[in-house]
């Protein structure tokens, strides 16, 4: 039986109640909007880039505890990372929340609290929305939807 406490860990609840970097970066170099039309979750990611490196990152939006905390922790984790590092992190995070990799030894640090999501397939999209949006922002910006054609999370719905 899936464990609710495993899904709603204290770190997740803390970030959903008091999201970090929850602000607009007025002078953002990049921004992208993410949207999950199935549940109405919305997130906007703002980036400042220093060459290939993320020098500042923030978000705004509304969503459930999982999507809000995921966006919040994302902003803490990717600050200072290069684009390639952020991409690689997303890949490993994706494997974690879809159950392809175990939290132990994933070397994901704080992101490991999302390991419980893999037991709740309907919630995978909540955890990955901010990451898809970050990816879009790094690629130049625009709008992403979890219902896009090339969405690899569709099967996880």
């Amino acid at each position: 039986m899936p464990d609710l406490r495993g899904l709603y860990q204290d770190v997740i609840l803390d970030h959903s109640r008091r999201p970090r970097n929850f602000r607009v970066i007025e002078a953002a170099d990049r921004r992208a909007d993410g949207y999950n039309p199935l549940c109405g979750d919305k997130v906007t990611i703002y980036l400042r880039l220093d060459g290939d490196r993320i020098s500042d990152v923030s978000f705004r939006g509304s969503g459930c505890a999982i999507s809000t905390s995921s966006a919040s922790i994302l902003t803490e984790i990717v600050k200072g990372k290069t684009r390639a590092e952020a991409d690689a992190l997303f890949g490993r995070f994706h494997d974690l929340v879809t159950g392809k990799a175990a939290p132990e030894g994933s070397d994901l640090g704080k992101l490991e609290v999302f390991g419980g999501v893999s037991e709740f397939p309907a919630r995978v999209k909540c955890a990955t929305l901010a990451w898809h949006t970050l990816k879009s922002a790094l690629e130049g910006g625009g709008t992403v939807s979890t219902e896009g054609e090339d969405d690899e999370d569709v099967a996880a719905r």
Binding site: L4, Y8, R17, L38, D41, A122
Partner: peptide, 26 residues
């Protein structure tokens, strides 16, 4: 302060099936 999606997931664990979301009425 609690999103409907989280309500739905927790109630499901109690065996309770409700609908959460925009109900095709955005």
């Amino acid at each position: 302060g609690i999103h409907a999606h989280d309500v739905g997931t927790i109630l499901d664990q109690e065996g309770i099936a409700i609908r959460t979301g925009h109900h095709c009425a955005q």
